[in-house]
Design a protein around this nucleic acid. Structure first.
Lengths: 220, 220
DNA sequence: TGCCGTCTCACCCCTTGGTGTGATGTCGGC
DNA sequence: GCCGACATCACACCAAGGGGTGAGACGGCA
């Protein structure tokens, strides 16, 4: 049986050569292609089945992020592993979003690199320690659902708050819940008072800031 | 000089013993304590300086997540490395949020474990490949700042949209930008028309849904 | 030169929203 | 049975917001 089919993408020919040497030393891996830029990489992916693409992020003629996005689009089974000199926060995030399965820096030890290639080929991910820290910081920023943000509201008020937060007008709320508009106004007033909010506008902000409505809880 | 001071926290005594053996084999590491539950771990952290806490996530008497949160609170310099049998999505995220610097599963190879302890001690992070995949999925869900969401707005309108999105009333905007209220209304009207929004309420929602204002871009 | 986009402002109009006050009915607990 | 919490609704008032129209000033560009 053949090993994991790998393509190297980097504009430095010397680095490609040394990567080829390092990876070929691992019997699980077979380096089948190497190219100098993202555009060529996409072409190769279009024509050949590959398991892993090892890609530099900065390159002439289509950078690594754009190439990654294109590759995962046309060949979802092919994993992309970014390999760069720095762990620039923005590039990490951009690469991950583009669909990269891992992100290593070039100071990685050969054995760890080969292991990472095998890891991503088997569907998991690989992150260099420094990069992992960046990613974890990002995760920590993800909102926490603070239920305390609705403290003191009655069940009915919570319900109406939900509609309020999605941009419903009093009229719409009264139609949806089959209530008189006066009733809705009473509830809204109670909500604003209890949460110490000025407006329904501030109610919406309150909801988003406290993670009470997620993004993609789209109003319509 | 002494090595990295490590505490083991796990309710299985046998596992603690084997971890101690494995880690002590690495000359950079010195296992100074081991305890069976989160509560005891917190006590130890309160009394002794530690570099790394290797913690199981499921335990009697204070689980790993709660213990982690407490430890990073009272000793921010101490790194917590979670070590569990499964890479349950929710637990991973909870642990990371609580402040864990890494997350390994118990199928890790001894050498990799020792390396991970050194990594987190030096301030970076360590993620098992399977866990990394979970985390990356999460990152991919994080909103993208779609500047297209403000397409067609003039610079002035973009500026006013920013205030609108933070819950400012027309009166406040006109005071902040030194404009007449009529002018502000004109701009707001143009904004709502161009973006096809009904309300200033929907403008706020639009802003959050498109990542144009982040959480913690608090209105006041 | 004239045109166009942008920013500025002024009216006017009507709808919606926020506030105050008060009333009714229901339910559960003491 | 009484009380308090909750949900329901009414009426009135005023402020704020959204919409229409028009218009002057400025700057860039053909």
């Amino acid at each position: 049986m053949t090993g994991i089919r790998v393509m190297l993408v980097d504009d430095q020919e010397l680095l490609r050569a040394s990567l080829r040497t390092v990876l070929s030393a691992d019997e699980r891996i077979e380096v089948t292609h190497d190219v100098a830029n993202g555009g060529d990489a996409v072409e190769v992916v279009r024509r050949h089945r590959l398991d892993v693409v090892l890609m530099d992020i900065r390159m002439p003629r289509m950078d690594g992020v754009a190439a990654t996005a294109e590759i995962v689009r046309i060949a979802p089974a092919t994993r992309v592993l970014m390999l760069t000199t720095f762990d620039d926060d923005e590039l990490v995030v951009a690469a991950i979003r583009a669909g990269a399965s891992g992100y290593l820096t070039k100071d990685v030890r050969p054995a760890a690199l080969a292991q990472a290639v095998c890891d991503v080929a088997s569907g998991t991910s690989a992150l260099a320690p420094g990069v992992a820290a960046t990613i974890l910081d990002l995760v920590r920023q993800v909102p926490v659902r603070r239920t305390a943000a609705l403290d003191g509201l009655t069940p009915r008020e919570v319900e109406i708050f939900g509609l309020l937060a999605r941009g419903r007008s009093n009229g719409e709320i009264c139609a949806e819940l089959v209530l008189s508009e006066n009733t809705v106004k009473s509830h809204v007033r109670a909500i604003l008072q209890k949460l110490d909010l000025r407006d329904r506008v501030h109610a919406v902000i309150h909801a988003y800031e406290n993670g009470l409505v997620g993004r993609n809880d789209l109003p319509d």
